[in-house]
C-alpha cells in the first residue's frame, strides 16, 4: 500500500442522503429476494462505514433496522404503499447487515444478512393487554383454520384450484374463541370444482399467487370460517443479480416449490387484484 493513502473508512451521517440511498437499495434488495413472509420497510439506519474500493468505487458497510409491513412479498403493491405492521398486531422487526458497492452511480449488493424477530409479548401486552399474540404456524388450531379456509375458498371458486404456499402469520384470539390466519396460495392446473385429489395438481408454469386472511370462529353449534383472498396479477419475474454471500435465517428461507414442468398451461391474466 503506498504510504499516506491508508485504508481507512470514512464515516458518514446515518441520515445523510447518500446513506439513505444505500439503505433504500438494501431494503429493495430484501423485498425482491424474499419469497415468503412480508415486505419490509426501513425503520432506522444503525451504522454506516464507507470503504474505498480499488480500482474504483466505494463499499458501504451498513446496518439497518426494518419493520414488517402488511403486504406479502408475493403482493405486487410497491412497498411505499404498504402499511407498517402496528405494535398491537404483534409487529416484527428485521436487523440487517449489508455491504453495497457503489460504482459509477450504481449500487450492487455484495453481502446481505438479516434476522427477523417479533416484538416481545411483554411489549405488546403493555400497549394492548387484550391483543392476541402471534401463534406458532404449526399449532393445531392454526392448521385447522388454514385447511378450513382453503377448502371454503376453493369451494366458492369457479377457476383454478389454489393450493397452500405458506402460512404467513397466525393469532389465537381468546374472546370470542377464534383463530386468525394469513396465508399465501398459488393457482394449480386443476379446476377447483372438479378436484378429487389435490396432491395431483401442479402449480402453473406462469405462477399466479394469492393472499388470504381468514378467521375460524369456534361456536357451540360448530365452527364457522370466514375467508377473503386476493389473487394477484401475474407478472414475469426478472432475474435478480445475486450477491457472493447471501444468508437468511431459517424463518425466512425459501418456501416456494422448486422446478415445475414447463409444458403446463399458462395462467389466465387477471387485470388488477381479484378479491374473492
Amino acid at each position: 500500500v503506498p504510504p499516506g493513502l491508508g485504508l481507512a473508512y470514512r464515516e458518514l451521517d446515518c441520515d445523510d442522503p447518500e446513506t439513505e440511498q444505500v439503505a433504500m437499495e438494501a431494503v429493495d434488495y430484501i423485498n425482491k429476494n424474499r419469497n415468503r413472509g412480508y415486505k419490509h420497510t426501513l425503520n432506522q439506519i444503525d451504522k454506516v462505514k464507507v470503504w474505498p474500493r480499488r480500482p474504483m468505487g466505494e463499499v458501504f458497510e451498513i446496518e439497518i433496522d426494518t419493520l414488517e409491513t402488511t403486504c406479502h412479498v408475493l403482493d405486487p403493491t410497491p412497498v411505499v404503499n404498504c402499511s407498517v405492521r402496528q405494535l398491537t398486531e404483534h409487529a416484527v422487526e428485521g436487523d440487517c447487515d449489508f455491504r453495497v458497492l457503489k460504482q459509477d452511480g450504481q449500487f450492487f449488493v455484495s453481502f446481505a444478512k438479516c434476522d427477523s424477530s417479533p416484538d416481545s409479548a411483554e411489549d405488546v401486552l403493555k400497549v394492548c393487554p387484550d391483543c392476541p399474540l402471534l401463534a406458532p404456524i404449526n399449532a393445531t388450531r392454526v392448521v385447522r383454520t388454514v385447511e378450513a379456509a382453503l377448502t371454503a375458498f376453493n369451494a366458492d371458486n369457479n377457476g383454478s384450484y389454489f393450493q397452500l404456499v405458506e402460512v404467513s402469520r397466525a393469532q389465537l384470539v381468546p374472546l370470542p374463541p377464534s383463530t386468525y390466519v394469513e396465508f399465501a396460495v398459488a393457482a394449480t392446473d386443476c379446476v377447483a370444482k372438479e378436484v378429487t385429489d389435490p396432491a395431483k395438481c401442479n402449480l402453473l408454469a406462469e405462477k399466479q399467487y394469492g393472499f388470504c386472511k381468514a378467521t375460524l370462529n369456534e361456536k357451540a353449534t360448530g365452527d364457522a370460517v370466514d375467508v377473503t383472498c386476493t389473487v394477484f396479477q401475474t407478472e414475469p419475474k426478472l432475474p435478480q443479480p445475486q450477491p457472493d454471500t447471501y444468508t437468511l435465517t431459517p424463518g425466512v428461507a425459501s418456501a416456494v416449490p422448486a422446478t415445475l414442468p414447463a409444458n403446463l398451461p399458462a395462467a389466465a391474466m387477471v387485470v388488477g387484484p381479484l378479491v374473492v
Binding site: D15, E20, N43, Q44, I45, D46, K47, V48, D65, L87
Partner: peptide
C-alpha cells in the same frame, strides 16, 4: 460546563450522526 472566558469550550455535535432517525417506532 464551566470554562475560563478566553478558553473555548469543547464543541459537541448537536445531533449524533448514528444511529439515524426512527421512521416509524422502535420495538
Amino acid at each position: 460546563t464551566v470554562v475560563q472566558p478566553d478558553v473555548a469550550a469543547a464543541t459537541r455535535p448537536l445531533v449524533r450522526p448514528c444511529p439515524g432517525r426512527i421512521r416509524h417506532f422502535k420495538i
